[in-house]
């Protein structure tokens, strides 16, 4: 199939940036979205042009590196799917596809579609440590964890930190990401000693990074490639309110 791509090009953080239109021909429906961009880039390199910069690593949907806003939807309209796992069979011949980077004041554009997500790292760092002995491996089942809690904690822990929640949020809030990290430790016995101080520190760091406030629109969880539940944000709010009301 033949496609028209409108891609955001920005040469460094000081550049103003602009949308540039490209034609890509003979795209196979079996290609992933990133492979389609690879084809475009190979051609651009042969023509002596600057290839389109985009983040990617595992291309298996588990690393959290890739991500772009495709036709106004973070990671494209396919649910529970990262950009690398989005396949061209979901598009049709002659489609015009708009491709933009995550838009957030806290995620400055490095180049084209690559944004700096260090703000997420600083939120994680603000969470600090958990009090567990770091010596030899503990005996199996020495700390019982209810199955339901283990499952919910694991669901939260599947967050890959891609940033789609921020990109999709009309308020540019990072609540779903921060909440996933707070929920996954907060549900486990090992996470209890620092549970409230961790929630408070991480929420304060999130606010300090310049993300917007949550108004419960639910756009984040709808685009999340890992299906982090909306309830995570309620759990974060509960832990945070407990911490600040003391």
């Amino acid at each position: 199939m033949n496609l028209t791509l409108k891609i955001w090009r920005q040469n460094g953080s000081s550049d103003k940036g602009r949308m540039v239109t490209y034609r890509v021909e003979d795209v196979s429906p079996d290609m992933s979205f990133l492979e389609m961009l690879d084809v475009l880039n190979e051609r651009l390199i042969l023509e002596g042009e600057d290839p389109v910069a985009f983040d990617h690593d595992c291309r298996e949907g588990i690393c959290g590196m890739c991500g772009m806003v495709i036709n106004g939807v973070a990671h494209g309209e396919q649910k529970l799917t990262t950009t690398c796992q989005l396949h061209m069979r979901h598009f049709k011949d002659g489609d015009v596809i708009t491709i933009e980077p995550w838009r957030s004041a806290a995620f400055p554009v490095i180049k084209d579609l690559v944004v700096d997500r260090s703000a997420f790292d600083r939120i994680i760092q603000a969470g600090g440590f958990i009090s567990v002995p770091a010596g030899s491996a503990p005996d199996a089942h020495s700390i019982p964890v209810p199955k339901e809690d283990a499952d919910a904690a694991f669901d939260a822990a599947t967050c890959i930190g891609c940033g789609a929640c921020v990109a999709a949020c009309p308020n540019g809030s990072a609540s779903l990401f921060t909440a996933a990290k707070i929920m996954h430790l907060g549900l486990l016995p090992q996470g209890q000693p620092e549970r409230e101080s961790r929630a408070k520190a991480m929420v304060e760091q999130m606010d300090a990074e310049g993300f917007g406030g949550c108004t419960n629109t639910g756009e984040c969880t709808a685009v999340c490639p890992k299906g982090i539940p909306f309830e995570a944000i309620a759990r974060m709010n509960a832990d945070y309110l407990k911490a600040v009301s003391k």
Binding site: N71, G72, V73, E100, R103, A168, E219, V223
Partner: peptide, 9 residues
């Protein structure tokens, strides 16, 4: 965003 943001929720 240049593209109209489509609500997913």
């Amino acid at each position: 965003y240049a593209a109209k943001r489509k609500s997913q929720a």
